[in-house]
């Protein structure tokens, strides 16, 4: 029951986060509690950054691959809400559709196709865990200390406008060559994956 209440609560709190887009683009003036820099943005940031971080830790500590994929699901969803808060709605929607709707399902599908038993687990050695944990915590401490020390200057005062059109224009003018190369790459990957996963004729 607590789970149900929690999920409904998450749903209810997640929804007004999407309001940020309107406030940033100035399209609708009806939603004023989600202005950039306001209290609501702070609350939403802490809730969803916390969700992302906890889910990432869940990915680290869980043993079953499907559990890991589930934690990854929550991490990806929380990151997409962070994109909404950053007024990057197009990236947020693409993150949801490609990562959550595509890559994650592909991963779970891969787990189902390649597992010997339903609960496949490979336990790593203790030494491995200790060394990896030490390195990662050290890395995190270094990174955070640098980030907290660094001075990135004053934040940009103007809020970006409607992003889809701007992204489209810039992608098809300034970034045309990378765009085409990405298209070619996707086709190569499609052919390659189909070739790799092909059944040998008996």
């Amino acid at each position: 029951m607590s789970l149900q209440v929690g999920i409904l609560w998450l749903c209810v709190t997640a929804l007004p986060a999407l309001a940020h887009e309107e406030a940033a683009s100035g399209v609708g003036t009806g939603v004023v509690y989600a202005v950039p820099g306001g209290w609501f943005e702070a609350v939403m940031f802490y809730v969803f950054a916390g969700t992302a971080v906890l889910s990432a830790i869940g990915v680290c500590v869980s043993r079953s691959v499907v559990r890991m994929a589930t934690w990854l699901f929550f991490a990806l969803g929380a990151i997409s809400v962070l994109y909404f808060l950053l007024a990057a709605t197009f990236i947020a929607a693409i993150q949801l559709i490609v990562y959550v709707g595509g890559v994650l399902i592909l991963l779970i599908f891969g787990v189902m196709l390649t597992s010997q038993s339903p609960w496949v687990r490979f336990t790593p050695s203790r030494l491995n865990l200790a060394v990896a944990g030490l390195i990662c915590v050290g890395l995190l401490v270094c990174l955070s200390s640098i980030l907290l020390e660094a001075d990135f200057g004053a934040p940009l005062s103007t809020t970006p406008g409607v992003t889809v059109e701007a992204i489209g224009r810039r992608m098809l003018t300034h970034y045309l060559v990378p765009f085409e190369i990405a298209g070619v790459l996707l086709m190569i990957v499609m052919v390659g994956a189909a070739h790799l996963a092909r059944q040998e004729k008996q």
Binding site: L15, L18, A19, E21, E22, S25, V27, G28, F73, G77, T89, F90, A92, A93, I94, L96, I97, V100, G101, G102, L104, I105, I108, V162, T163, V164
Partner: peptide, 20 residues
């Protein structure tokens, strides 16, 4: 409820997430 300029992509993404 929320008029989004990426509403179409958003709805498509939600239909995809339901599968998870």
């Amino acid at each position: 409820f929320r008029e989004m300029d990426v509403a179409l992509v958003f709805i498509l993404a939600m239909m995809g997430i339901e599968v998870v």
